[in-house]
Simulated assay, not measured.
Amino acid sequence: MLTLIKNGDVFTPDYIGKKDVLIGGGEILAIDENITLAGTVGVEMINAQGMHVVPGFIDSHVHIIGGGGEGGFNTRTPELTLTEATKAGVTTIVGVLGTDGFTRTMPDLIAKAKALTEEGITCYVHTGSYHVPIQPVTGRIETDLMLIQEIIGVGEVAISDHRSAQPELNELKRLAAEARVGGMLSGKGGIVNVHIGDGADKLSLLEEIARTTEIPITQFLPTHINRNKDLLQAGIIYASNGGRIDLTTSNLPHEGESDLKCSKAFKKILSRGVDLSLVTFTSDAQGSLPRFNDKGEFTGLGIGEIRSLYDEVRASVLEEGIPLEQALQVVTRNVAKALKLKGKGELAIQNDADIVLLDKQDLSIDTVIAKGQLMISHKETIVKGTFE
């Protein structure tokens, strides 16, 4: 079966004008001004008139088997479902463990990634959790990356946070070195996804490693950079020195700090001249969003939503005036390049056919295609998860 998307305005994420897109076998076969397959048997036509045709979104920080638990067992959050992702335009996910790397395990995480992939999207995972030293599935970070297909990096390792294992500099150096070698040998990104908390040290450990070793600053992908104003400012400096930074779309800003909203923080970062290619968004979906008082006592809880990824891309354009092609990059190309996700993040020939159609008027999601399969059509769910 071939699918021909006609008459849409195509963003690769760069805008290339009105084009037709032909897909088949799960891949993009052609992008051209006028692809004609009149009379060809087995061609499904999608009229994208009035639509933007964009790459499927990549969310590289999702607690796919749930997270949380900081307020007790009843605060454990639920697993992600397939349609929660597809309704948000997300066609590629990276699953992570967080605070609870004890009752939520790597075998569970890998099994859930396999399930989501079988249901129709693409899902990878990182090995490890908040805690250092991590406990790789195979006993070594390098062999986890080399021998387990779904594992593409390490994390989410926590620093500057009262819930972290308080890792020392040499521990993080060793972890990053192992992740780098494992990534090189496996042909994967091997990045270290780093949870940054409210602590005073902020990004200093990562900066020290970049200064004192041969490990490049891009080996790390620190997230939750829009957690507070001081961390956001530190993140801007970090990115100005060549480091990647990730903004969380599900964050709960402190009272009176609406400028920490992801889209607003993104605009501020761009206004400071930060290289756009170094910025990404992630949702922290299904992760708990706990609140603590100044004594570190648990006071309340929210939950991350994968829909927030799309919402903040949309808000970046409609509320903050950021061009669509720039807003798209932080959930497509930039993520794929940072994690070395082959065939992802761009509409290009031989890349995976992960495509979203957005209504030009309000940027609402009309159609979602994952690996060539129609998941959402005219806002109607076509494919649901096994138990949905």
Results as ranks from 00 to 15, higher is better:
2 L>R: 13
4 L>K: 01
5 I>F: 10
7 N>Q: 02
12 T>Q: 06
12 T>C: 01
14 D>L: 07
16 I>S: 04
18 K>W: 12
19 K>H: 13
20 D>T: 02
22 L>K: 07
26 G>Q: 12
34 N>P: 15
44 E>Y: 12
50 G>M: 06
50 G>T: 00
56 G>L: 06
59 D>F: 03
62 V>A: 07
67 G>A: 01
72 G>I: 03
79 E>F: 11
82 L>M: 10
83 T>Y: 10
90 V>E: 00
92 T>L: 02
93 I>R: 02
94 V>E: 09
95 G>T: 00
98 G>V: 00
100 D>Q: 09
107 P>D: 01
111 A>G: 08
116 L>T: 01
116 L>P: 05
119 E>K: 11
122 T>H: 15
123 C>G: 12
126 H>L: 13
128 G>K: 12
130 Y>H: 02
132 V>F: 06
133 P>K: 12
137 V>P: 04
140 R>H: 14
141 I>S: 07
144 D>G: 10
144 D>H: 04
147 L>A: 01
166 Q>I: 11
168 E>V: 08
169 L>K: 12
172 L>C: 01
173 K>C: 13
183 G>E: 00
186 S>P: 07
187 G>I: 12
189 G>R: 06
191 I>T: 08
191 I>N: 08
191 I>D: 06
193 N>V: 10
200 A>L: 15
202 K>Q: 14
204 S>F: 14
207 E>I: 00
208 E>I: 01
212 T>K: 15
217 I>S: 04
218 T>D: 06
224 H>E: 04
226 N>P: 05
226 N>M: 04
233 Q>C: 08
234 A>Y: 14
239 A>C: 07
239 A>S: 13
239 A>D: 11
240 S>L: 15
242 G>T: 14
249 T>R: 05
252 L>H: 10
258 S>M: 12
259 D>A: 05
260 L>N: 07
266 F>R: 03
268 K>N: 09
275 D>F: 02
275 D>C: 08
278 L>C: 04
284 D>G: 05
287 G>Q: 07
289 L>M: 12
291 R>C: 07
291 R>E: 13
294 D>S: 09
296 G>W: 13
298 F>E: 07
301 L>R: 09
301 L>G: 00
304 G>Y: 02
308 S>D: 15
309 L>T: 02
310 Y>H: 15
315 A>H: 14
317 V>L: 03
320 E>M: 15
320 E>A: 05
322 I>W: 11
324 L>R: 05
324 L>S: 08
326 Q>D: 08
328 L>R: 02
330 V>I: 06
330 V>N: 07
336 A>H: 03
336 A>K: 04
340 K>R: 11
344 K>I: 04
347 L>H: 03
353 A>H: 14
364 S>R: 11
364 S>T: 04
367 T>R: 11
368 V>G: 11
369 I>K: 10
370 A>V: 00
382 I>H: 05
383 V>L: 11
